[in-house]
Structures are given as structure tokens and as C-alpha cells.
Design a protein around this nucleic acid. Structure first.
Lengths: 124, 124
DNA sequence: CGTTTTGTTCTACGCTTCGTAGAAGAACGT
DNA sequence: ACGTTCTTCTACGAAGCGTAGAACAAAACG
């Protein structure tokens, strides 16, 4: 999976944070909102450019039916994260060893979460 | 953590695949060996350049004591992988949901490995 | 319909990263 | 001191990304 630049990531964050498909202008506004005072507002064309790139990279899809095209994330944020974790793991030559390291460094709470998730897996 | 380019990654692979610290020339030879017929041999200075960059990025350290400086990975490959997995997870807003997705998509064998690892965690 | 407004694509530029390696400099053996 | 070996400095071209104007298309409106 290709990686994301800063603005690309911000756009994905916005798309991920609500399930509805958004237009370029809505995205621009959401970005401006999100960054509050701190960040400048970015031009709509800029948003459109990154949306095209995100589409080319397979991160978003768009509906061309009505005129303000509407854009939405192809994967949910969690799916995306899980995918990335697999990708990282796939690059390792010894997956089990890497998993061991990973498990060895999660917090207690997360270890418990993992246990619970694995139990649920078995149960169905 | 910064990301790695193709050659940078190859260099790290070599460093990870043996625990000894290597000189630039040994690395160049190992790379040439590894890529066999397929790939051209890269110049020693090229290796040195990427080693400097890897050092700046915190991936390798070098001993300057003796003349062919010797380079070694700062993290083991597994530590690196685990670190990346945490990094990916940290970018998610809902870690538990992301973990759930991840666990839901691992193979049966890996689920078993995870269970075993978590059991070992508890036991000590 | 022609015009104004709104939305999209095309093109482009500057910055940064990375592969690539020569030129120049430093250190070491003899 | 001299050549050899190693490292650093400098540089360049390609690609990725933030950035956005210019040009083009479509819709709204009078």
C-alpha cells in the first residue's frame, strides 16, 4: 500500500471521522475547522488534487453522478490500520518472532483486549 | 520513525541478517551477492551515503575506532517490526477497534501463536 | 439561450527524499 | 613522503507531495 503525505493523511482523517461521502468544499471546510486558528485554509483545488491522488492510490472512491462529486474512504480507518499492520508484518522474515516482540511490548490493557478478542474468535 | 527507501531497506536487511557489524565494502559485497545476477553492483560511496543517512535517521550506529568503520543496526529486525506495528496502531484513533480488525484477519496459525504468546506473558 | 457561478481537470512549480556516484580530503602502511 | 584505502562533501536526476492558478465543463439563473 502506498503511503500518505501530511495533507493526504489529514484528508483521510476527515473522511474516516464521519461515514458520509463529502464534496471537495466540505472537506476543505472540515480541514479548516479541524486545524482551527493554527493552520491556514487550503484552496479547494488543492483538496481536489490530493483527492485525485488518493483516488489513484486506491484510498478513496468518488461518485461522479451528481455535480459536486462526493468522495469517501474505501477502507475504514480500522481496516486501513489492520492492513498496515499486516504489511509491516509481511516485511519481516520471521513473522512469529516479530509477533512475539509486538506482544511483548503491548500494555497490560491491550494484552487483555487481545486475549478477549482471541477468545471471541474461537467461540464462533 | 522515518521510512526507508529501497536501497536503504536492502542495507538494513543485510545488517539484520547477521549480527556482526560490517564495513561499507562488506556491505557492498553482501548486496551484490544477495541480488545475484539480476542487480548491478553499487559503488562503495553509494553504500556510504545511505549508511550516513541511516545513521542520521537512527537506524544504524557505527564504530569509528578502527579504520574501516563498522556499521550495525540499532534495533533488531523484530524490534523494528514491533516498533512499526505500534506506530501504525498509535495513528489509529480507536486502538481497540484496530486491534480487533487485526486479530480478525490473522491466519489461524498466527492466532494460535498469539494465544501462546499471551499465555507466556501471564505466566511470568 | 447567453451569462454568471460553481465545480473539475490540467499544468506547473518548489521542496524534500532517495539512488547514484565522482571529487576532494584524511588517515594509514610502508 | 607516497601511494593506497577509506570517508566525507557535493551534486544531480527522478519521484512524491503541498500548493494553487489557468483552462475547461456544467449547472443555475435571468
Amino acid at each position: 500500500m502506498a503511503s500518505l503525505g501530511d495533507l493526504e493523511r489529514s484528508v483521510m482523517e476527515v473522511l474516516w471521522s464521519g461515514d458520509a461521502a463529502l464534496s471537495a468544499n466540505e472537506l476543505r471546510d472540515a480541514l479548516a475547522m479541524r486545524d482551527g486558528e493554527s493552520g491556514r485554509t487550503v484552496a479547494t483545488t488543492t483538496v481536489l488534487t490530493v483527492l485525485s491522488r488518493l483516488e489513484r492510490k486506491g484510498f478513496v472512491s468518488r461518485t461522479r453522478e451528481h455535480r459536486p462529486h462526493r468522495y469517501q474512504a474505501l477502507l475504514s480507518r480500522e481496516e486501513h490500520t489492520a492492513e498496515l499492520m499486516h504489511e509491516v508484518l509481511d516485511r519481516s522474515s520471521d513473522r512469529d518472532a516479530a509477533l512475539a516482540r509486538f506482544v511483548g511490548t503491548v500494555s497490560d490493557g491491550e494484552a487483555a483486549t487481545l486475549r478477549r478478542l482471541l477468545d471471541e474468535l474461537v467461540r464462533r
